[in-house]
């Protein structure tokens, strides 16, 4: 190692133990592989999906920035569907059990995955959480991903539907800034629309155009958790997805 700055260069003699390259003696071969790098995650995801299908449970992954209203939406949804659909939630966060506690307070089972410093959930984490979560009798399992618009997009969890939330205070250019996340979603929810009168910078039209430009092809629902036609449209979407899942399982 270089004595001046600690870099890995420096006099050859001093470098030798750090750059321990064996002298080439063997045969060199080039092996064509061509496999998806995340094929192990994808394998576990397929297994998770089969597990959900076996129980006739609709599994939905919620993704967004931190603070765009995932947990609040779940709280309002659970209350609105009380007695109609049986719901459980897997919560992903870097730290704390706060979100799981909020969901349990609504009277439904919640498993908290604290990822430590990992920025996303992967299929194996969801699989492990399922050990503690009986699926019998459930209609919907929500997976609330770690609040992050970058990393969760690359990992299939084995859910049936991916949702991305975009809240009004975040700005209408989020899809253009984080195209991979929004493109991969099946449904986009523009949340906190009750704040539109106070945040004139946000244009729903521009947000919709931005979603189309990044290749998002699903439905877009504008809503606030406080109720109204958008919230009813969201519940309607959920009901029809549950019905489709039941029909597929029957």
């Amino acid at each position: 190692m270089c004595r001046d700055c600690g870099c890995s260069l420096g006099p050859a003699a001093a470098r030798a133990p750090f750059a321990a390259q064996p002298a080439t003696k063997g045969r060199i071969e080039s092996i064509e592989v061509i496999t998806a790098i995340l094929d192990e995650n994808d394998r576990v995801a397929t297994h998770n999906r089969a597990h959900f299908d076996g129980h006739g449970v609709l599994a939905v992954n919620l993704m967004s920035s931190p603070g765009s209203g995932k947990t609040s939406l779940l709280e309002a949804t659970i209350k609105a569907l009380q007695g109609e659909l049986k719901v459980a939630v897997i919560e992903g966060d870097l730290a704390t059990e706060n979100d799981a506690a909020r969901i349990r307070a609504c009277g439904v089972p919640a498993i908290q995955i604290t990822t430590g410093n990992a920025c996303h959930l992967d299929a194996q984490m969801v699989h492990d959480a399922l050990d503690d979560l009986p699926l019998d009798g459930l209609d919907v399992l929500f997976v609330e991903n770690v609040g992050n618009l970058v990393c969760p997009a690359s990992f299939d969890l084995g859910v049936h539907r991916n949702l991305t939330l975009l809240s009004v205070p975040e700005g209408d250019d989020k899809p253009a800034k984080y195209p991979v996340m929004f493109r991969g979603a099946d449904l986009a929810l523009i949340t906190k629309v009750d704040l539109l009168p106070h945040i004139e910078e946000f244009s729903v039209g521009r947000a919709r155009d931005s979603l189309r430009e990044v290749g998002f092809r699903g439905d877009i629902i504008e809503l606030t958790r406080r109720g109204g036609p958008g919230f009813e449209a969201w519940l309607g979407w959920l009901r029809s997805e549950v019905a489709a899942r039941r029909a597929a399982a029957a």
Binding site: T24, I28, E29, E32, V33
Partner: peptide
């Protein structure tokens, strides 16, 4: 994708 691995 993992495309190619060159080995000795």
């Amino acid at each position: 994708l993992l495309q190619r691995v060159e080995i000795e």
